[in-house]
Amino acid sequence: MNKTVKNADEAIIDIGDNVTLMLGGFGLCGIPENCITALVKKGVKGLTCISNNAGVDDFGIGLMLKTRQVKKMISSYVGENAEFERQLLSGELEVELIPQGTLATRCMAAGYGMPAIYTPAGVGTEVAIGKETRKFMVEGEEKEFLMEMAFDADFALVKAWKGDTQGNLVFRETARNFNPMMAMAGKITIAEVEELVEAGELEPDQIHTPGIYIHRIFQGSNYEKRIEQRTVRKK
């Protein structure tokens, strides 16, 4: 089953205003750079973005914030972005902060066909306000859990290291992060890869995300792969 499309513009062709998007990546690591560039070019507005972070001022989701394309961010951590802060304080942007593990698991639940999960994260904090709770016995102790719903996203945009024409994906190092679970969670999932190969060239045993979850795949170009915090030691 060939899932390949020519480029990012073609991949996002049916993404319109006011849709909910999932975007893979942790910080600027493993983000769908080409799709973000294409969305900025297309100028779609009113987007709800589910992504662990919101990029920086001039890169990643920050590019879509600058052009006021984002209506709402659902993230676990949104620091390092002055434009984000300005829009949040002025009320132009809505933000929902949720624990990182809850974010990952709500994506996972969607991909596994489960409507909800129970997690201890946020019990007794403001995250729990208005949520259904339930007690379970854990290691001989009664413990409270929050019910958190699976995400419902129109599109998931993910970035992999390698992929084949069938949509099978292989990620590299910590650029994997949220990409596999978001790939599974989107109603339509678009994968951009650094290297697109023919079906059969990837080792089936090494595939992280099977192609069944991927609707479109394309060979990305001009990856910047910007480093957010360059930390080194001297030789």
């Binding site: 942790f26 910080g27 600027l28 690591c29 493993g30 662990n52 990182q100 593990g101 974010l103 990952a104 698991t105 994506c107 996972m108 290291w161 990620f171 590299r172 190092e173 910590t174 650029a175 994997r176 992060n177 949220f178 990409n179 596999p180 679970m181 992280h208 792969k225 910007r226 480093i227 957010e228 915090q229 360059r230 930390t231 080194v232």
Partner: peptide, 25 residues
């Protein structure tokens, strides 16, 4: 430095022998 290899503080890091990568879930 490798842009694909960072820690939870987004700093560039390395791995030690026997390391393993996995997804956020």
């Amino acid at each position: 430095e490798d842009a694909d290899l960072i820690n939870a503080g987004k700093q560039t890091i390395t791995t030690v022998p026997g390391s393993a990568f996995f997804d956020s879930a």
